[in-house]
Design a protein around this nucleic acid. Sequence first.
DNA 1: CATTTGACTGCGT
DNA 2: AACGCAGCCAAAT
Length: 105
Amino acid sequence: MPQQHAEGFVEAVLVVVADIPPGQVATYGDVAALLGSRGARAVGQVMARSGAEVAWWRVVRAGGRAPAGHAERARVHYEAEGTPLRPANDDDGYRIDLAACRWRG
DNA sequence: CATTTGACTGCGT
DNA sequence: AACGCAGCCAAAT
């Protein structure tokens, strides 16, 4: 089995993300907090590297926006899962209704 | 072992 | 409201 060493934080993040129910989301900061850390960026770093194997679109920015540069891909998933979205006039074209679907562990 | 890097955040201007 | 800036944290180089 590949990589049998040195995954503490990385695996922990992936586990938390895997726990987020469909149709709900958590902010980077939330995920970090659930791990007892304040490293929102560190979480983003993990997602950038190993996010491919999890439901990365369920981890969003504090402002209710999808991960930077992934708005279009994420949108498909939100619509498929019934995640409450809200129209916006920015590049993303939409915002996630955090008040309605923010997940609490 | 020191530095750089990011799918972040909140506050100030 | 847009923009910049500093604080933050762990992995990668």
